[in-house]
Structures are given as C-alpha cells and as structure tokens.
Design a protein around this nucleic acid. Sequence first.
DNA 1: AATGTTGGCGCG
DNA 2: AAAGCGCGCCAACATT
Length: 598
Amino acid sequence: MPVAVAPLADGSALLCDLAPDGGPAAAAVRVDDLPSAIAARERSGRVRWVWESAARCYPQLLAAGLRVARCHDIALVEALLLGRDGRHREPAALTAAWGRLHAGEPEQAASPATSAAQQAAAQQDAAQQAAAQQAADAPSVRPGAVPSGGQQALFEPAGYRLTGAELLDALTAVHADQLARIAADEAPARLRLLAAAESAGALAAAEMSFDGLPWRPDVHDELLAGLLGPRPARGSRPRRLAELAAQISAAFGGRPVNPDSPAQLVRAFAAEGIPVASTRSGVLRGVDHPAVPLLLEYKELARLHTAHGWAWLDAWVAGGRFRPEYVVGGVVSGRWASNGGGALQIPRVLRRAVIADPGWTLVVGDAAQLEPRVLAALAGDRAFAEAAAAGDLYTELAGAFGGDRAKAKVALLSAMYGGAGGEAGQLLAVLRRRFPVAAEYVESAARAGEEGRVVRSVLGRSCPPPSAAWRSLAAGSGDPGAARSVRARGRFTRNFVVQASAADWALVLLACLRPRLAALGPAGAPGTAGSAGPGDGRPHLVFFQHDEVMVHCPEGLAGPVVEAVGAAATEAGRLVFGATPVRFPVTTAVVSCYADAK
DNA sequence: AATGTTGGCGCG
DNA sequence: AAAGCGCGCCAACATT
C-alpha cells in the first residue's frame, strides 16, 4: 500500500494512506516520531513510501537506524516522465511538478519515435493499455490548495520547501498524476517497473553512502608513498614527480617545461622539430623522443596524485569508509553518476586499499559481457541469442568470424558504438550477414538518431531529443560539419538503446538484490529501528558501478550472498526481458581485498 | 578574484 | 592495439 510521507520542520510528520490509484484512502495522521512510525508500518506489512525524494528524506531515517523496503521517489519518477515527453531539461522536483499540475498544462503526447522493439513492447502491453486509457481519460487529480500561486512554484528559489498539509497535498496529487501518466504510456508495465527500480536504486544509493565502502587509509598512503615518494607539503610536487619534471626539462635541452601544460609541451616538441597534434598519451607513444617515456610516467603518476592522492584521502575517507554521493539517474542512459570523490572512477591500483573489516569479506559481482547480451535479448535475434545462452559470448560467436574471438569482439563493440575504423567495417559486414536482426536493431536506432528522432530503453527510458542548434545544423545539407554531427547523433542513439537497457537491467538487479540481502541478516526483515548500520551483522551493498556490485558481509554469509547475487541477476533478466534464451551470468569473487577480484 | 572552458585521463 | 558510447575531476588557460 502506498503511504505519503510529509516531514514537518519539528521532526514530526504527516502520513496518509493512499489507494492503489494514488488518491487518499484515509485521513492524514500526524506522528511525532517519524522513524518509529515508519518502522512500525514496515513491520506490519508491505508499504511503499511516497516521498519527495529518497535523497532528501532517507538519510535522516538511516541515521536513526532505520531501513525501508520500498518507496516511490517523486522527483526521480518525474524526471523519467519528463524525459519520456522529451522534456529532460525541465526541473523534476516536487515543487516544479506541483506547479505544472496547477498550471493545468495539457499532457504531452508520447514521443513520435518508436522502434520495432518498442512497438512489440506496446503489443505485449496491450492489456494494460486498455486499462491505462481509461485511467488517462478520467480526471485523476483534484485541484487542491495552491502552494503559493500556481505556476509560481516553477520559479521558486532553490531552497523553497513545501511544508505540512501543503506538502501532503502536493505529494498526493503529483503521485496520482504520475501513476496516471505511467498508465497512459505505450508500455505501462515496463515503465512501472522502471519507476519502481529507479526508486529502489535511490534507497540503495542512500544506504551505500551511509554504510560506506571499506577503505584503509594506511594502505592507500603506502601505495602513494611507494609510487610518488613521501607525502609532500601542501601544494608542492611529490619527490618522484619533481624528479621526472626535471628530467623532462633536461630532455628538452634544459628549457623549462611544465609537464602539466599541454600547450607548453606542444611548443617544446615543436622546438625540437617534432610537430604533435596533442599531448595525449596515445599520440606521444608514437613519438620518438627521449622525453616521451618520462612524460608517460609523469602523466600517470600526476593523475594519481591530483585525482586520488593525499588530498582526496583527507577529503573523502573517514573512519575507514569512503562515502561518495551517488546521483541516481545522473546519466541520460540511466547509469548513476557521482558527486565528489570520483566514486565511479576509482583507479585500479587503489583497489588494494578496499579491504573488508576483520571477520568480514567482500563479495564482488560483475555482469559478464552485459551490453552484447543485452543487445541479443533486445533484438531477439535467434542465432545471436542462442550464442548468448552459453558461456563466453565472444567465443560462441567466434565461429562466424573464422574462429577468431577477438574479431567477434571488435565486430560487436563496433556495432554497439558505431565504430567503423580499421577492419571494423569488414567485421560489421560479417555481423550483418550472420546476425541480420541484431545488426538491424542498432542500425535502426542509429537511423532514428540521425533523423532527429528519439529512442527508448527496454523499460522506456528516453534519450533526449536533439537541440535546436542540432536541428538547424542538420537541416543544412552539404555541410561536412552537419554530416559529422548527424553521424555523431546516430552513434549516440545507437549506443543509447544498448547502454540504457543495460542500465535498466542493472537497476532491476539492484532492486532484486536489496530485499534478498536484507533477509539474510540476523535481524531479518527491514524496519527494525536502532539496529541497522555497519557492524550490525547484516550484508551491506557498498558499491555499484554500472555492471558491478559489491557486498560487504560477515564471512559466514559469503555463500548466501553469492547465491543472492546470482538469483537477483536471473530475476532481473526475467523481469526486464521476459522469455529469452539469453542468460545474464554474474561472475562473483569472494575476497578480502577488492584488488583480488578478477 | 571569480567563473567558465579545454585538454587530458580515470572508470564502465 | 585502438576505436566507437557514457561520465567526473583536475590543472592550465581564457574570459569576465
């Protein structure tokens, strides 16, 4: 049952039971102690908490020792629905949604672009579609109290907050409206799953930030010292970098060159009679000059020092935990982004510093060859899908490429990314001949992009429409710049259908894994106030990176956690893709140090 | 001095 | 081996 949660300034809150269609099912009640009230409801049955934003509401509950099982995140669902209508740039916060609802703006028509797969999805959803139409026809939202003048809410200052009864009205009305908009989609069941998974992801993200990734500052410091020399004074170069910088200047005949400055390096090479287009390491590798090996070493170490050096350690690791802020849905494809700490770009060398607590262990799960498997399931190419039912996908496909696994891999990556350089063109031709349905799937997505249309993921996340600037550029034919940007958008939409559908799957995996992990702990089901947190004996999700999950758990629970990850992956495959021979295997490693996984 | 952009590179 | 897609972050550089 959905229950709207409106926290008040004094720590109390209004709760209101909602009907399945989102309308109020009972009078609102005021509770003085929100965590206790939520814990009690969690124990008494299945509840879906309808709140403004898990990112905003959940951390306080976690701090009070509480975990909840399910929620509906108004802001995240609003962003999905705005995107569905090609309105990615509009604000998705509750206040903005409430303002739009009050302005009584007409619902936008669904996006005109539909691929073959989406049409199939729409047919699968035909039954829900009939019901959805009824819901869409009926007025589902009662006008309530105007927060502070209708459309004005759109332009409220950033800190503006609704409170109390107004907040409850807004939550209830926007929630009901969102359910109706989902029901009116061409594939409501899928979009409903996406909304639920996105919301569950927001719970997982907040929990991961709260629990933190185990991180040993002493190990990190040793790694840095071994590579860079002892920690330098603030603002000065570590010993090894200083040595390399001096050697680099010497290699340029003693002329002072700051290796951090691409412009100075380009001039220095030019002075030696070597024109370089850029100072990227890939370009420099092809340059024959004594400064090059020094520069390559410098760049690698300097990167480590500036991005993940001692300053990073001071800023981001406390109490043996790295606590980044994850931004759910932060990437257009539905992948997560992160805010500060570079959580999704942790260099491989630093994985040595990620070490389980004594008596605990890390279970690291990695979805093997996720994106090509997703393409196989999306496209429904039988020959391709059957290859994806077995072990190594590229090995299974190698037969089509003269038994060469590497060629199969290049062909697949080129098909998904739109590359055509080198021998990729020939390999693509082979792919097109042997797996025409799969090739057509990505090529139709590319055509849609080139024509300025939008595409959607399997669960219905939409890519942004092209900008006005792109449209006017693309309209001018004959211009090589126009042709280039048209092709670039084709590569974007080609990749979007795969990357975004893979993100759908990963999100559903996370949503399926959370309750399985919660059930493994000694405390049993969630909703036990005062007992949650690190050291509570329960497995914790501590990291999620696109196609990889990490669970920190007591050693004795490693086996059940491995099983839970595998079961969640299977469940996600079934929920997202239905009946398909494609399997989504997750390779799991039970290790005490992240660096020892794979 | 503060803010915005670019080049480069880490991750998937 | 690199390339095609998606990001965040830093120092240097450009602009206001």
